[in-house]
Design a protein around this nucleic acid. Structure first.
Lengths: 194, 194
DNA sequence: CATTATAGCTAATGTTCATTAGCCCGTCAA
DNA sequence: TTGACGGGCTAATGAACATTAGCTATAATG
């Protein structure tokens, strides 16, 4: 891993934990194993690092939600839908980089316009568009009752998003959150699936 | 309004907008109309102000969700339920103190244990317990289909909570958010109400 | 009227922080 | 061999910040 990448990595960890203002350039340099001034050989300043982190999050988002490739095939049964959905949610909840990015965005959303806008785009539009497509697929196959796919997607994902946010701030409740999400998912299936 | 209250008020506004670390004692004093050192006649320090704000938020929560008085009577029709629910949500979304407290809590949730714990208690437990009671009441009256009231409450409130969070960071979308919430609410009623 | 507490002020302190200046060493191309 | 450059270093700078010390005026209390 190059020094530039190490800086990004360390900054993301610290920003997520202590916030942007609560993190000093020296702390970042310490983790990387260099002195603070050396950091300026790689980035113009602290804000430049934040912008690089936002860029990188946007790229990741583009890869995950930009194309429709990663939706996979339409689940053919209730249990299959529950399984792949729980896997997807579990990954999103636990992946360290996604988790730290979420925590960073949550904290900076009111001061940084790019982050504010990206949060809405990722958390609401992206996820719901994805699930709307899956649900639409299942509607077409007759597995799910006919209804507005976007509304159903929002109902499906919103409780999960809130539980993920809870697990971010209270990691000791992670298991409980996942169970709660599964309960919701099963209830959703009971109501809307044949 | 006493100076002590003015300080709380100014601090809440600034903390919500710029975060705790992003706010200086001098900025708070400026809004109040005193010099920074005078502030220490009222509070031991910056953190003391934050703690007072948390105390005050907890008291407010206790008043709003502590007793069951403020649930009001069980709505007798779909339209009545929609009306009172939208009013409740609109108030929660727009009331300046509640809004700023929410924004402060969102930003500090990872660094302050009291806030972390309170966020879960207010955002998940409190709201859902309240709506579960209303829904339970309507189930008993036969207006809502028999089901787990807490699950239904979570499904009802989760999309609203996310839209309120969106309106907090993008106030220009407030109207859009409210319309979105009403759409969800009506869909919820279509699915679960007779 | 005397005294005491309250709540403001200015000046100062010590710390932390982001950033810059300028030096040095190793690598690699000309 | 030379020279340029990348990437590290130390030292320094200047600003911001939380907090303390100590003075003063006004209001409340005896």
């Amino acid at each position: 891993m190059s020094t530039k990448e190490k800086i990004m990595d360390a900054a993301l960890t610290l920003f997520a934990e202590n916030g942007y203002d609560g993190t000093s350039v020296e702390q970042i340099a310490n983790i990387v194993g260099i002195k603070a001034p050396s950091l300026y050989k790689h980035y113009k300043g602290k804000e430049d690092i934040l912008n690089a982190l936002i860029d990188s999050a946007e790229e990741r988002y583009e890869v995950m939600f930009g194309s429709e490739k990663n939706i996979g095939k339409v689940p053919q049964s209730r249990e299959e839908f529950i399984k792949v959905t729980m896997e997807r949610i579990s990954f999103t909840m636990r992946d360290p980089i996604i988790r730290k990015t979420r925590m960073l965005f949550v904290q900076e959303q009111f001061r940084n316009e790019r982050i504010s806008e990206a949060t809405t785009r990722h958390q609401l539009d992206g996820i719901q568009r994805m699930f709307a497509k899956i649900i639409k697929g299942m509607m077409d196959e007759g597995i799910v009752v006919k209804d507005d796919p976007k509304l159903l997607a929002a109902e499906l994902t919103a409780p999960a998003v809130l539980q993920i946010a809870r697990a971010d701030r209270q990691p000791q409740c992670e298991k409980e959150c996942m169970e709660y999400i599964e309960k919701h998912l099963r209830h959703f299936c009971k109501v809307y699936m044949r």
